[in-house]
Each structure stands twice: as C-alpha cells, then as structure tokens.
Amino acid sequence: MLSLFLVALASASLLPGGSEVWLARQWCQEPAPLALWAVATAGNTLGSLINVALGRYARHFQGRRWFPASPQGLARGERWYRRFGEWSLLLAWAPVVGDPLTVLAGVFRLAWWRTTLWLLVAKGGRYALVLWLADAWLAPYC
C-alpha cells in the first residue's frame, strides 16, 4: 500500500505518472477496495496540495522581470478564478490540465480547506471509478 501512496503522490505532482494502472494492479493482488481507495485518494490529494503550495510560493516572484504574468494579467486572472476557477478543480484528475489547475489554485490563493475539499471530491471520484472498472473488467483475469 505504501507503493500505491507514493505512486499516487508522484502522479499528482508535475511529474508524469500512472496511478490508475498501479491501483488496478494493487486491486488484483489484494482486493480491499476501500483501503486502496483511501490510500490512493490521500496520496494523490497530497500531491496536488504540493502543487498548490508551489503555486502560492511562485506568487512571491511576481515582481521579477521573468515572471510570466503582468500585474494586470494576474489581477484579471484572479478575478476570473474567483468566479469560475474553484469549480475547475473538479478536473484536477485530468491529464495535462489537472496539474496546472492545482498550481493556479495556489497562485490565486484559494483557501486551503476549499482546495482540499474540491481535490478530495475529484480524486476520490476518479479512484472510485477506477476500482469499479477494475472490479467489472479485471476480476476474471486477476
């Protein structure tokens, strides 16, 4: 289970990873779906929260010449994020767009508890679906 936690954590960071495949593999070896779901969800949520922290830290560099956003662009982005961005965290599980969305949650300083709640819903839902599919399709082959 430790390996599942670490793979899920790394998969949520800006590093590439495939925690869904690892979860299905673990399910074949020890079918304890609730425990597997909890471990994968916790690891992946923690990994995304690391991205949020990186986004919060990146904001300290906004005065530098190389910072990718102007103060006006940052203010415009923050207004948009306050209006629509919170819901976008439901896509934090998605490849390519999920990790940047979590970084933006940090850049625009969404409250930690709200960020954590959205991430738990998104990540937990995805892993519940993976386990359901594993049970439906992989059970005869395990």
Rank of each mutant, 00 (worst) to 15 (best):
R114D: 02
T116H: 00
Y81I: 01
P100N: 06
W113Y: 12
A105N: 00
A111P: 07
W66K: 09
L54A: 15
G43C: 05
A69G: 08
L101M: 04
L101C: 01
R76F: 09
Q29H: 13
L104S: 01
L131G: 05
W80I: 11
E30N: 15
Y57H: 15
Y141K: 06
A128S: 14
V130N: 07
A10T: 12
G77A: 08
P140V: 10
R114A: 03
P31N: 09
Y81H: 10
P16D: 08
Y141T: 03
T41A: 12
P100H: 05
P71H: 09
S88C: 12
L46W: 05
L110R: 00
A8E: 06
G47F: 06
R65K: 15
E86Q: 13
R79E: 15
G55A: 08
L129Q: 08
L133M: 13
S88G: 13
L49M: 12
P100G: 02
Q29Y: 13
P71W: 11
Y81P: 03
A122I: 01
A122F: 05
S11V: 05
G98D: 04
V107Q: 00
A69L: 15
L74V: 06
W37C: 10
E30T: 14
R82V: 09
P95T: 02
L89M: 04
Q26C: 14
G73N: 13
S19L: 03
L23S: 00
A8S: 15
L133P: 01
S19V: 07
V130P: 01
A10P: 06
G106C: 10
L2G: 15
L14R: 11
P140C: 06
G73Q: 15
V7F: 03
W113I: 06
L104E: 03
G47Q: 03
S11W: 01
E30P: 03
G47H: 02
S88M: 12
G18H: 15
R83P: 02
L34D: 05
L89C: 05
L90F: 04
S48C: 10
H60L: 12
A12H: 04
V96F: 11
G98W: 00
A75Q: 12
S11I: 03
L15Y: 13
V107F: 10
W66E: 14
Y81M: 11
W113Q: 10
G125S: 07
S13N: 09
I50V: 14
V130K: 07
V130Y: 09
L36Y: 08
W22L: 11
T116K: 03
G106T: 00
L129K: 09
L133Y: 08
A111H: 11
L129D: 09
Q29T: 14
L23G: 02
V97M: 07
F5M: 07
G125D: 00
V107P: 05
S3W: 14
A8W: 04
W93C: 07
A40Q: 03
V121L: 14
Q62S: 14
L129S: 08
V52C: 05
L101F: 03
Y127L: 05
P71E: 11
V121W: 02
L23Q: 00
A136G: 06
G47I: 02
R126A: 04
